[in-house]
């Protein structure tokens, strides 16, 4: 059906599905914008426990940035026809994404260890909830990546419009959740 849609609306500069994904990302961004504004509003109201964000959240930023780079190089390799790089980099991205989740979990445990539990004070609760919701979006990305891995390893390497589109959708989303983390980290660093 995808191919049909593409032909039917071939006059468009940007594919409707890609555009729809951008629009959806706008909605997700608003959700996090609400969270970060909530921190600001709530912090201004006082009774705000100060603490230092555990370093692990910074290490994790490197992990997620690397995963964006690896996914992008996988995409380029896919288009160039370099099968082994395409598959390898895709697998690496998946591993890095999973590692990000694992390290976030470590980060939450670190927080608990320094006495900031989920219910201690809203300042800590925000970190748990917001990074948790972000992690849920990463999990969604991992789902898309698993599908991409299946395609990469089970199908012969052919650059059809449908597969290219699917890859580009995954790529856009993954870059987006990566950017989202940078945005959140910026707030966490500024406010904590």
């Amino acid at each position: 059906m995808e191919a049909v849609v593409e032909r039917a609306y071939g006059r468009n500069k940007i594919h409707p599905q890609k555009f729809a994904l951008w629009v959806a990302c706008g909605g997700i961004l608003m959700m996090f914008a609400a969270f970060t504004s909530a921190i600001i509003v709530r912090q201004a109201a006082g009774n705000w426990l100060e603490f230092r964000l555990p370093d692990i959240f910074y290490y994790n930023t490197i992990v997620i940035l690397l995963s964006s780079i690896s996914l992008h190089s996988s995409y380029l390799a896919f288009r160039r026809g370099n099968t082994s790089l395409y598959r390898g980099m895709l697998a690496l991205t998946f591993v890095l994404g999973a590692a990000f989740i694992a390290l976030q979990y470590q980060g939450w445990q670190k927080l608990t260890a320094i006495g900031i539990e989920l219910t201690t004070n809203p300042s800590g609760s925000f970190i748990y909830v917001i990074s948790g919701v972000h992690a849920a979006h990463i999990l969604g990305g991992l789902g898309a990546l698993s599908l991409a891995l299946l395609h990469a390893y089970l199908l012969p390497h052919k650059v059809t419009p449908a597969r290219k589109l699917r890859f580009e959708l995954t790529l856009t989303y993954w870059h987006f959740v990566d950017f989202l983390w940078l945005y959140l980290l910026f707030f966490f660093t500024m406010l904590y």
């Binding site: 706008g26 909605g27 997700i28 608003m30 959700m31 996090f32 914008a33 609400a34 909530a38 919701v133």
Partner: peptide, 12 residues
């Protein structure tokens, strides 16, 4: 699209 996600955050 710009306002309902904010409600979801509030609900969460």
């Amino acid at each position: 699209l710009l306002s309902f996600p904010v409600l979801v955050s509030g609900f969460l």
